[in-house]
């Protein structure tokens, strides 16, 4: 956990005068599972959008694997090893699961790779191999989430940004998703996830970054963050003991 994979310096985004992200800096080292939490509207998804290139920065800079991202096109960022799983799953509905994942395996980070093997591995690690020949339009929410992760993993990312991978899942599915993200990390991919489910977050993350109203509030181990007074005041508004165990 020494090499810094992704770092942001003074990252700021304004939408027509409204500051959505305000001077946020971060360093994500190689090999960890990082968490990003904050109340609704804190700017978590916006921050991910800035990193993946959906919006240009107003000021500040983001560096990934030693390269300043600037206005690098979205697909180039992925080819560099940056993948994103969306909060609202965006499958290719008319294609089968295998085909969905194969798109990621065919493109994504270049290098010598076997498309079929990469596809199979991604299906296996997310536990949806048995659904490979089904059309994506027919899946349940839980399986769609897994497909979202599988497709991102198939691009062989160095860093996976997962936007609320557990939202809308039942406890069993959440459990599976946590196991799946661990497996992805163990296979060598750094993971940074936004999550509402505190149990999942504290359970899985090595370190957590907290943002509120576009500003960075705290960073530390789950234990530190949960006991941080500012975090409790701003984000939870309640004593730590009343932490919601599960937010559907």
């Amino acid at each position: 956990m020494s090499e810094i994979l992704l770092s942001g310096r003074g990252v700021t985004k304004k939408f027509r005068g409204l500051t959505a992200i305000d001077d946020v800096s971060f360093d994500i080292p190689h090999g960890a599972i990082y968490g990003l939490i904050g109340p609704n509207g804190a700017g978590k998804s916006t921050l991910f959008n800035l990193i993946t290139g959906y919006h240009p920065l107003t000021s500040g800079s983001i560096t990934f694997r030693g390269k300043v991202l600037g206005n690098m096109p979205i697909y180039r960022r992925n080819q560099l090893g940056l993948a994103r799983a969306f909060q609202i799953a965006k499958p290719f509905p008319a294609l089968t699961l295998a085909e969905n994942v194969r798109v990621g395996a065919m493109f994504g980070r270049p290098g010598d790779k076997n498309v079929e093997r990469t596809t199979q591995e991604a299906l296996d690690v997310t536990g949806i191999a048995h659904l490979a020949q089904r059309r994506a339009g027919e899946l349940t929410v839980g399986d769609l989430r897994k497909l979202e992760i599988a497709r991102a993993v198939a691009t062989r990312p160095v860093l996976l940004l997962a936007d609320e991978p557990c939202a809308g899942l039942n406890p069993t599915e959440t459990e599976e998703m946590v196991r799946c993200l661990r497996a992805v990390r163990d296979a060598g991919t750094t993971v940074w996830l936004v999550e509402h489910d505190m149990k999942a977050v504290t359970n899985i993350c090595d370190r957590i970054i907290v943002i509120d109203a576009g500003k960075k509030l705290a960073e530390g181990t789950p234990h530190e963050v949960v006991n941080n007074k500012e975090v409790i005041a701003a984000y939870l508004g309640t004593p730590a003991a009343d932490l919601p165990a599960h937010t559907p």
Partner: peptide
């Protein structure tokens, strides 16, 4: 071919295709 897969991905969801490294 790879070309065809890229086109299918573009048809299904162009933004997501980009996110998967497809130079759309």
């Amino acid at each position: 071919s790879r070309f065809g897969y890229a086109l299918l991905a573009i048809r299904e969801d162009e933004d997501t295709a980009m996110m998967l490294g497809v130079p759309t």
